[in-house]
Design a protein around this nucleic acid. Structure first.
Length: 587
DNA sequence: CTAGGGTTAG
């Protein structure tokens, strides 16, 4: 334009700055336009031009220049203050946003819709629930509740502050909704673990004629974690393909994650290797997918690809996932080395999560004492998950004394948790120390701690069938029981010996045997075998870890009836096929 | 000229 000898006017510079705002941070295009604007007399002085320049400096990360420009603006208007507020939230400095809001107020300016949205955003980012609630009242008084955007940011604010119910109240009161409103409400539920409600809102949105957007699909996909969501996840994948949004980085990352969490690494891989670009989250989700099934080799190889590609540097989540994969896959040495060198190699300081991973890694490999040394040398206070990892390992390998130390720490940190008490009691039980096992049970009763009941579930024809141990109430109980007896004989003929060492109470051996045959996962499997047609893998979920005997039995059954069985317990996946499990008996 | 929603770990 300048080369053609045309003179820029006051419309030229704002659009030029807007374009420059999305240039890479090191590009000098923004500052060049700045000098031109000065040369042509638009700066300082023109509020439109200076606001655009201000925003550009923030967006390209030149904070000092932005603040300097803001400082010398002769006539700061709301838009200028808003640029400060919105960019501060975007960069994760919510306090600065709130400060700027009051700055605007003190300077005699009147906040507008954008300022109010930014304020709610800041309260969401800083988790300032009561400040946001007060501001909610104020915004209503000023008449801002007529604005969709303001209401949307209120829904988002309540959702982020863990108040999905309050978000819903705002949402229900909205006379007009747009796509953002629906997404914010779905996110509010999804981020607070209310998967069913999130999905119900999604369905309502679709019924109301809302098109599925990248935002909507990536958000709903997070509600499909675990085997039960697989059908739903595949449906959403199809929806994304039909709407041509499956290549969007958020959608693709969410798909990789969803398939990984459902134990379908092949599907995750297909998306991962086909998409044009990947970001940190995509890489992490893929490594996480391998970690879920305990495929340490592939986790390490993708991690290696990530480093060599130079696309993105790993972060602490990447390392949590890789070390977890090593732990589950039995690559103890590799995992430990990564943990030891993550600081110098990748500049990532080990966090509490990494310590928990490495204690788990060493513990699984039978190196409980080494794990204990790591805990003792920690620069930060060991958390519940660190001691929990040690206790779990001690229980697995019968290291009763060290287990007791871990358990005592756990009781201090979380006296009400039933899982730790049960683990310790079981550990004593399997060491034959019945008096101590019973004592802990009694103690639980006295203090009023109830054990989470173990249960397993299977979906069939869109109905979830839940089983608890010794469950006789299911309508198909007789058939289930008959099938289990038959399988028991076949398994014994094939060399199966019941493993009753973790049976809770001091029962006679025979009673222990019949006890383990009423475990919830066995009931769920029998139900699956009866209902689900041959050839279709049986997918079972369990809220606690799978028991040792069930694990052994499932290997036999997968071979005897020639069926794939996939169990997701509260810790990882077990994929049974032809007398073997994907965990290699290492879990 | 400024604005509202999304993906990973725990």
């Amino acid at each position: 334009m300048l080369r053609l000898g045309l003179r820029p006017n006051d419309f030229t510079f704002p659009s030029a700055f807007k374009a420059a705002a999305s240039a890479p941070p090191r590009s000098t295009i923004g500052p060049q336009i700045h000098s031109l604007a000065i040369k042509f007399g638009y700066l300082p002085g023109d509020p439109f031009v200076s606001c655009a320049a201000l925003d550009m400096y923030f967006k390209t990360g030149r904070l000092m220049l932005a603040r300097h420009l803001f400082g010398e603006m002769p006539n700061r208007n709301v838009v200028a203050w808003n640029a400060v507020m919105t960019n501060a939230v975007l960069d994760g400095r919510p306090l600065e946003t709130i400060e700027a809001y009051f700055g605007l107020w003190e300077a005699g300016g009147l906040p507008n819709v954008v300022s109010v949205c930014a304020f709610f955003n800041a309260c969401a980012g800083a988790m300032f629930l009561s400040l946001g609630e007060q501001f909610h009242g104020f915004a209503v008084k000023c008449g801002f509740e007529m604005d969709v955007s303001v209401l949307n940011s209120m829904v988002d604010f309540y959702g982020k502050c863990r108040c999905a119910g309050k978000a819903r109240l705002v949402f229900d009161g909205m006379g007009v909704r747009n796509s953002v409103s629906w997404c914010s409400m779905i996110a509010a539920y999804a981020q607070n673990g209310a998967e069913e409600e999130a999905f119900a809102v999604y369905q309502r949105a679709r019924c109301a004629g809302e098109e599925p957007t990248e935002f909507m699909i990536s958000c709903v996909l997070t509600t499909c974690a675990g085997l039960l969501g697989l059908d739903l996840g595949r449906t959403l994948h199809a929806v994304a393909v039909r709407s041509c949004i499956d290549a969007n980085i958020f959608v693709a990352s969410a798909l990789v994650d969803m398939y990984g969490k459902c134990g379908c690494v092949e599907d995750a891989e297909q998306i991962f290797f086909e998409i044009p670009q990947r970001n940190l989250v995509t890489w992490n989700a893929m490594v996480g997918g391998y970690a879920h099934i305990g495929d340490a080799q592939n986790a390490l190889s993708v991690f290696d690809d990530m480093i060599r590609s130079g696309e993105t540097a790993p972060n602490y989540i990447t390392l949590v996932n890789v070390i977890t994969a090593c732990s589950r896959g039995g690559l103890t040495k590799e995992g430990y080395e990564l943990f030891e060198t993550m600081k110098e190699k990748f500049g990532i300081e080990p966090r509490i999560e990494h310590y928990a991973c490495v204690v788990d890694l060493l513990g699984r490999a039978g190196m409980e004492e080494r794990a204990y040394e790591v805990i003792c040398g920690m620069p930060i206070r060991p958390s519940i998950s660190v001691w929990g990892a040690l206790l779990g390992a001690c229980k697995m390998h019968g290291k009763t004394e060290l287990g007791r130390i871990a358990a005592e720490k756990l009781f201090e940190l979380d006296p009400q948790d039933p899982g730790n008490h049960v683990l310790l009691s079981n550990m004593f039980a399997s060491a034959g120390r019945w008096a101590e096992a019973t004592y802990i049970r009694k103690e639980m009763k006295n203090v009023g701690i109830k054990k989470d009941p173990g249960c397993s579930w299977v979906t069939w024809k869109n109905v979830v069938h839940v089983f608890r141990a010794k469950d006789t109430k299911h309508e198909m109980y007789d058939e289930i029981h008959a099938l289990l007896s038959k399988l028991r004989k076949q398994m014994q003929a094939a060399g199966y010996m019941p493993d009753t060492q973790y049976s809770l109470y001091d029962l006679e051996e025979e009673e222990k045997e019949s006890e383990v045959f009423q475990h919830s996962e066995k009931l769920a499997l029998a139900f699956g075998l009866i209902c689900i047609p041959p050839g279709v893998p049986i997918r079972i979920m369990k809220n606690l870890r799978i028991c040792v005997d069930c694990h052994r039995a499932f290997k036999f059954i997968s071979g005897i009836v020639d069926r794939e069985i996939i169990v997701r317990d509260n810790n990882r996946f077990h994929h049974f096929k032809q007398y073997r499990c994907s965990c290699g008996d290492y879990w």
